[in-house]
Computed example of a mutant assay.
Amino acid sequence: MVTEELKAHQELIQKVIDTLGADIEAACKLITDTINSGNKVLTAGNGGSAADAQHIAAELSGRFVKDRKALPGIALTVDTSALTAIANDYGYNHVFARQVEALARPGDLFIGISTSGNSQGILNAFEAATVIGCKTLGLSGRDGGKMNGLCHLNIVIPSDVTARIQEMHILIGHILCKAVDDLF
């Protein structure tokens, strides 16, 4: 079982190398342009994707590999008072969009993560970010879902297996953080 899992990961990473390099480079440019212009990065996802969103934000505000100044990375998944109040008053599908409306400014970057590309709360947040004038980056899987039409760039992992998609999302998150580290 262990060998099979590792081989499945290895096969998918080769597909990502072969097909998504240009998209990942474009994503690196999105995040570095955002940081260089003094703007912030907001992230969101559900479940395991929430953990990935928090991980990316933490690498920005803390550090990834090298010591550098703290950078504005905000995970919209961590404020339980906001999440529960918004869910109670507006419905769960609005928990991220309302926070985007409150915190985002033109030129910021919103990174939405959804393995299916169809999580309604993430889709609503992309719509809110677009209205504000944010850049938008999606990390999805399968066929990209509805996120394809809502993001400036949607990196679609070519797999239907949630675990494999999530593994690639966190790898891409680390690549984004490396690109940011390289600025300093």
Rank of each mutant, 00 (worst) to 15 (best):
V2M: 15
T3V: 15
E4K: 11
K7V: 13
H9L: 14
H9F: 14
Q14D: 12
V16R: 00
D18G: 01
D18Y: 02
L20F: 05
G21Y: 10
G21K: 13
I24V: 11
E25C: 13
C28N: 08
C28E: 09
T34Y: 07
I35P: 00
G38L: 02
G47Y: 01
G48P: 00
A53Y: 01
Q54G: 05
H55P: 00
I56D: 01
A57L: 04
A57Q: 04
E59I: 09
E59G: 03
S61M: 15
R63F: 05
D67R: 14
D67F: 12
R68G: 02
R68V: 08
A70H: 13
L71K: 01
P72S: 12
P72V: 08
A75F: 00
T84A: 05
I86E: 01
N88D: 04
Y90L: 11
Y90M: 11
Y92A: 12
H94F: 15
V95N: 01
R98G: 07
Q99G: 00
Q99M: 04
L103W: 09
A104I: 12
G107D: 06
F110H: 04
G112I: 03
S114P: 10
S114H: 01
T115Q: 01
S116R: 07
I122G: 05
L123I: 10
N124M: 09
F126M: 12
A128V: 10
T130R: 13
V131C: 10
G133M: 07
C134R: 04
C134S: 11
L137P: 00
L137F: 07
L139I: 11
S140W: 00
G141L: 03
G141H: 00
R142I: 13
D143T: 15
D143S: 15
D143V: 13
G144M: 06
K146C: 10
K146G: 12
M147R: 06
N148I: 15
G149F: 08
L150K: 12
C151P: 00
H152V: 13
H152T: 14
L153F: 05
N154P: 05
V156F: 08
I157K: 03
D160I: 14
V161M: 12
V161K: 13
T162P: 07
T162Q: 07
Q166P: 08
M168I: 04
H169G: 06
L171P: 11
H174W: 11
I175P: 01
K178W: 08
A179E: 03
D181G: 07
D182R: 08
L183F: 07
